[in-house]
């Protein structure tokens, strides 16, 4: 009996909610892929549009920057740029991070495994030092000095402590 009641309840709920729920969104500004809706006479046209990324104009690539680029075709863009990134370079590190401060996966960052691991560790260092406090989950207290115990004091990190020996080199790929 109770099962029947439950089923009937969910049926009614579905009937009410499904009319107002839409899985397609039309007005999200941030999407690189956007769905737009417009009317042509009596028909409503829905179309998915690719929006240009806000970063393409500001993009820095080694082949545009360096005088004589002799870049191996297999290297990723960070290896080719050969930047000395520190954990305090938050303007660079924040590009690899989601809005909740989580490192983006490799299929999105398009880095080589070595760089992905290195930048992931640098992001962790910057987060622990409280340098990217606006890119944290919503439940985070937005002031590093209000953290608990030893975490409320300033901490810096040495980039030499990243164990690059354990991270595979691009040449190691075929040696397994």
């Amino acid at each position: 009996m109770s099962l029947l009641l439950k089923n009937s309840y969910s049926l009614i709920k579905n009937a009410i909610v499904s009319t107002s729920l839409r899985t397609l969104s039309t007005t999200n500004q941030l999407r690189l892929k956007e769905i737009r809706e417009h009317k042509e006479g009596s028909t409503v046209v829905l179309e998915g549009v690719f929006v240009p990324s806000p970063r393409t104009e500001l993009l820095v690539r080694a082949e545009n920057v360096k005088e004589s680029p002799h870049i191996c075709p297999n290297t990723c863009y960070m290896c080719a740029l050969d930047l000395d990134v520190k954990h305090t370079d938050v303007l660079i590190l924040s590009q690899f991070v989601r809005s909740d401060g989580c490192m983006l996966p490799r299929r999105i960052t398009n880095l080589c495994p070595r760089q992905q691991k290195k930048i992931g560790k640098l992001v962790t260092m910057a987060q622990k030092a409280g340098l990217m406090i606006n890119l944290t989950p919503s439940y985070c207290k937005k002031d590093p000095k209000k953290r608990y115990g030893f975490k409320k004091f300033n901490t810096y990190f040495d980039e030499k402590t990243i164990f690059m020996k354990r991270i595979p080199k691009p040449t190691d790929r075929f040696e397994r």
């Binding site: 999407r31 500001l58 299929r107």
Partner: peptide, 16 residues
């Protein structure tokens, strides 16, 4: 926003 960017999103990425 104006700082030079290194990483660009793939075309089908949905920003969060």
């Amino acid at each position: 926003k104006k700082f030079p960017k290194v990483m660009d999103y793939p075309t089908d990425y949905v920003l969060k």
